[in-house]
Structure formats: structure tokens, C-alpha cells
Amino acid sequence: MLAEGIFIYLAAAITILSVLVITRKNPVHSVITMLVLFFHIAALYVTLNAEFLAAVQVIVYAGAILVLFLFVILLLNLKEEAVARRYVGPWPLGLMAAVGLFLAIIVSLDSFVAGPKGAFTTEVIKAETNTKALGKILFTEYLYPFEVVSIVLLVAIIGAIVLAKKRLRS
């Protein structure tokens, strides 16, 4: 009963906060709302026995990505944002597309068939802790994708510098 109550609170908060994120006029308000939203999603991860991902969610999303967003908003000096239109001209079309996609997902949920269960039951994870179990798989079975991710991050660093630099000297 308690678990259901916590889930319903988190789900309601996540839904309301995500709607607030896309409807606020001031981008700074959107970023602050999104910060609260990410904390709620981290709490949802804790209820799903994924403590490591909850920590990563707070550190990477709330700590790194949102600060980046905030920096860019302050850099751009969006004074005319307060008087400008919020939505594009054909916004009802976009809303209809989103609702249609939602209905398609909900209808297709009924035909969902769960696959075979894996080896990591709650008892196994409790015995060797979530982070250790995650690290064992990450550094053995998924070592190659892990290395590829490091290259992706390197490309992102170089790409961000190249894009944001004023003029490359030739």
C-alpha cells in the first residue's frame, strides 16, 4: 500500500512537472522545474532498486546537463522572450501528433509479452550490491560499448568547442 502511494505521488509529480517544463514562458523557470523533475525521477529509480542510476541521474543530469542549459540561457540574454509568442504557428498539429503517438503506445501496450527472466533477482542484487552487479556486467560483457561511449564523449567535447568557437584561424 505504501509502495503504491509513493508511486502515485511520484507519477503525479513527474507528469505535472514535465507539463510545466514545456509550458513555462521563461526558460530559466523551465530549467528549475526540470531540476525538481530529475530529482523525482531519481527517487523513482530508488524505488526500482537502481540506486547507482539514481545517483548518476542526480550527478549527470541535474549537476552537469542542467547547469550547461542554464549557462547557455544566461549567455543568450533572452530579453524579448517575455513578450514573444511561446508556440509555433501550427501548434495544434504538433499536439495532435503527440497525442496520437501516445494513444498508439497505449494500445500497443496490451500486446506486450514479457521475455524470460534473468539471473538478477532482488536477493542476488542485495547480496552483492547494485553497483557491484552493474560494474561486473559493464566491464566484462559490455566493455566494448563502454569504450565506444568514451569516444562519443571525446567527439562531443571537440565538437562543442569547434561549434562554439568564434572563428577558427586558418
Partner: peptide
């Protein structure tokens, strides 16, 4: 859905 709507509307 909220994400898609925000992307298409704003």
C-alpha cells in the same frame, strides 16, 4: 508524449 508535444509546439 509531453516531450514530443513540447518539441513540436515550442
Amino acid at each position: 508524449m509531453v516531450g514530443v508535444a513540447g518539441f513540436l509546439m515550442r
